[in-house]
């Protein structure tokens, strides 16, 4: 018994039509059928948030949504963030602040952060931290992710944030610290 349905879905602005097995969840469909492998699979039971994508503008665990349920929907994945070869300010800020280490939770984090900034362009650190608690990261302890989202918010508001410096200046002494 293996039932299939034909679905039409717009992912990152591109329309797709596909025949999918009804039991295939959305993350698998994105990865296998559309080769959009930026959406990663972490726990497959909705806790870790690694597979977070936007569906019709709101974030969902794509391991807990069927591909057939995305029929007619608009989906955004990490691959939809960068445009014309330019990283999204969130991606730039994650890079600058080293808001990632292994990178595996990063696509889900970026999508969640994108949703957060859509909801509130002027967030506080506390608000961002609470919003990011939606997704697990095992590497960073979250601090630099929070910093990155705040930096991106500032940039998206168009305030006077310097262009991303490729390299930070040297620390002046043999001892350095940061809060």
């Amino acid at each position: 018994m293996s039932e299939h349905r034909r679905i039409a879905v717009v992912v990152n602005g591109t329309p797709y039509e596909a025949e999918v097995e009804t039991r295939k969840y959305l993350a698998e469909f994105l990865r296998e059928d559309l080769s959009l492998v930026g959406t990663h699979i972490g726990c497959e039971h909705g806790v870790c948030g690694t597979c977070t994508v936007l569906m019709n503008g709101v974030s969902v665990r794509s391991c807990l949504v069927l591909a057939v349920q995305a029929n007619g929907a608009e989906v955004m994945t990490v691959e939809g963030l960068a445009t014309d070869g330019q990283m999204h300010p969130l991606q730039e800020a994650f890079r600058e602040k080293q808001g990632l280490q292994c990178g595996y939770c990063t696509p889900g984090m970026l999508v969640r952060a994108y949703e957060l900034l859509e909801e509130n362009p002027e967030p506080t650190a506390e608000w961002v931290r609470e919003g990011l608690a939606n997704n697990l990261c095992r590497c960073t302890g979250y601090q630099y992710i929070v910093e990155a989202v705040l930096a991106a918010a500032e940039r998206l508001r168009g305030s006077s944030v310097a262009e991303g410096q490729p390299f930070e200046p040297a620390t002046s002494s043999r001892t350095n610290q940061e809060a």
Partner: peptide, 11 residues
């Protein structure tokens, strides 16, 4: 961890 197959109805 993939679900077992099922018939899908969407009323």
């Amino acid at each position: 961890m993939k679900p077992a197959p099922f018939n899908y109805h969407a009323p």
